[in-house]
Design a protein around this nucleic acid. Structure first.
Length: 544
RNA sequence: GGGCCGGUAGCUCAGUGGUAGAGCAUCUGACUUUUAAUCAGGUGGUCGCGGGUUCGAUCCCCGCCCGGCUCACCA
């Protein structure tokens, strides 16, 4: 049989470059079906399977079931059943015969003559079903014989333990809820192909139950932060993601366009300047948990869109925030993992014991080479100049810290006192005007948070913006823009304030023992996939 | 962007300059407590794409696409 078919699982054909109508920038786009090189191939196995299952829809309907089902009342979720009955013995279950109604997706089938076993999965957890010809109606047994891996079903019966002791449902009623048309990944290895795991996260969730756990933990991390801040009187707000001026961080933005206003807008790189406008307006404690967008490289620690918690507390300073941060992280670790000591790779990260160092101390303490510097060295502009090619002593100090020390910060650590050059929005230290009242939190060699006493002197802020503009002149694409409305807000008088940002994705990496940020983001950014071709498969199958 | 590694059946993976392999899945048959069920038989491949070398390329060479790791950049 010859038909037009396209690759389904992996579209690895050339991505088409098309020129958009509005501008002349070339953008890669996923090709649409039928749009290029339709070629004839014999029917692939996968498509045969697809057609076969599509045809089975009619057989299921002929038995009186709706192939795409209807609402279904389950009495308990599978995770709840497993939790509740895990300690009950076979004898106890035989005596009680607990009656339950459950729903889930079929992941294994072992047919044995006139009976069989299946595992069905709900929320990443599995329960075994035992279907016996004698125990169900004739119609239900016919349905059972038509079931495919991946189908969604509902079942009712009583719980028991098999000879080998596995908690199972003795099925007395069976119903059909949704048809699967595509093969599911192998039962033993699951889905290993990282590309498919990220592109088709739904399939990853079906095949790899641990993934459910990762994202449940992520949700716990977020709700823990949210609850802790709310308990302390912080109000959750949402500020613009599309901004006509971008700021609040050192980063290059994404640009988008509003048609009616005919203006270019930037996707925000940080909510900071808007949150501080709210502080100026008298919302004394605010926080936002939302996405930031930075037009930069992708790595195991960077995704172009990432989730940041930012919070601001009026009348506080960075010392208060250090104490608060220690509490927040400790409680997040407890809420997310049940322990303040969290395994990460070969490491045990202790969020119950966060160390604190001044940046200059840290350079001396965590210097990874033999010629360990002294405190006099790290305060000496000459020494700094020799060890870095950065122009100013402050930039050099940070450069040296990041290159020689940052990776050594395995245990959760606060580094404070940052040079003024790299901190355009932070207040200067009262004793040392070359430094700011700022700190960052590190763990597993990774920056997870950044905080400072906010600069609220409008004239000093004006000078900092001008310093940034000079850096932009020199070619620094990440330097700040001048934001006059923000200056105006400061001119009304912003209370002394402490503010902090915490990278939710990175904290989640630590709490879920994930090596890559892509493992804690449901749909990480990937290049477009290209041809998929499934619409054509459906078209062909339904015309048969 | 640089370096390294990878892409072979739906999934997990072997493999070779000369007809393309296994397990699972799938199909047929047997089997009413199995569990990586078992047993017997069958189907299934543009070996990522394009070009080159060769009598012959999935294999060697070049280019490209997609992904991973890593460095750079960044949070």
């Amino acid at each position: 049989m010859e038909v037009a078919a396209y690759r389904l699982q992996r579209g690895r054909q050339t991505t088409l470059l098309v020129v958009s109508g509005n501008d002349d920038r070339k953008r890669p786009q996923a090709a649409h079906y039928n749009s290029c090189f339709p070629r004839s191939y014999s029917l692939s196995l996968e498509q045969e399977l697809f057609d076969q299952r599509f045809a089975r829809i009619r057989e299921i309907a002929a038995l009186g079931y709706r192939p795409y089902g209807q609402r279904f009342d389950f009495t308990e979720t599978i995770p709840a059943i497993l939790a509740r009955y895990t300690t009950q013995t076979a004898e106890e279950l035989d005596a009680a015969k607990p009656q339950v109604r459950i729903a889930g997706r079929i992941l294994t089938i072992r047919r044995m003559g006139k009976a069989g076993f299946m595992h069905i999965q709900q929320s990443g957890e599995r329960l075994q079903l035992y279907v016996k010809k004698d125990a169900v109606s004739e119609n239900e047994y016919k349905l059972y014989q038509l079931l495919d891996l991946g189908d969604v079903i509902g079942a009712e019966g009583y719980l028991f333990r098999t000879r080998t002791g596995e908690l199972s449902l003795h099925v007395e009623k069976l119903t059909f809820l949704s048809k699967n048309l595509l093969g599911i990944p192998e039962k033993y290895h699951g889905l290993e192909d990282v590309e498919i795991r990220y592109r088709q996260r739904y399939l990853d969730l079906i095949a790899n139950p641990d993934v459910h756990q990762v994202f449940q933990t992520r949700a716990k991390v977020i709700s823990s932060f949210r609850r802790q801040l709310q308990e302390r009187g912080f109000i959750e707000v949402e500020t613009p993601m599309m901004q006509s001026l971008y700021g609040g961080a050192a980063a290059r933005p994404f640009i988008t366009h509003h048609n009616t206003l005919d203006i270019d807008l930037y996707l925000r790189i940080a909510p900071e300047l808007y949150l501080k406008r709210l502080i100026s307006g008298g919302m004394e404690r605010v926080f936002e948990i939302n996405r930031n967008f930075r037009n930069e490289g992708i790595s195991t620690r960077h995704n172009p869109e990432f989730t940041m918690l930012e919070f601001y507390q009026s009348y506080a300073d960075y010392h208060d925030l250090m104490d608060l941060t220690v509490e927040l992280l400790k409680t997040v670790a407890l809420d997310a993992t049940g322990n303040t000591v969290v395994p990460y790779g070969d490491l045990q990260l202790d969020f119950g014991n966060v160390r604190r160092y001044k940046m200059r101390e840290a350079v001396c303490e965590f210097w990874k080479h033999a010629d360990r510097p002294t405190m006099d060295n790290v305060c000496d502009p000459e020494w700094l100049r020799i060890h870095s090619d950065k122009v100013t002593p402050g930039e050099a100090l940070v450069d040296i810290f990041e290159r020689h020390c940052e990776q050594a910060l395995i245990q959760p650590t606060i580094i404070h006192e940052y040079p003024v050059e790299v901190s355009p929005l932070a207040k200067q230290n009262a004793d040392d005007p070359t430094m700011t009242d700022r700190f960052e939190i590190y763990a597993a060699g990774m920056e997870i948070g950044n905080a400072f006493t906010e600069l609220n002197d409008p004239d000093e802020q004006r000078r900092r913006f001008e310093m940034q503009l000079a850096m932009k002149e020199r070619g620094d694409e990440e330097a700040h823009q001048m934001d006059e409305d923000y200056l105006r807000a400061l001119c009304y008088g912003m209370p002394p304030t402490g503010g902090e940002g915490i990278g939710i994705d990175r904290v989640t990496m630590l709490m879920t023992n994930s090596k890559s940020i892509r493992d804690v983001i449901l749909f990480p950014l990937l290049r477009p996939e290209g041809e998929i071709g499934i619409a054509q498969w459906l078209r062909e199958a339904s015309s048969k």
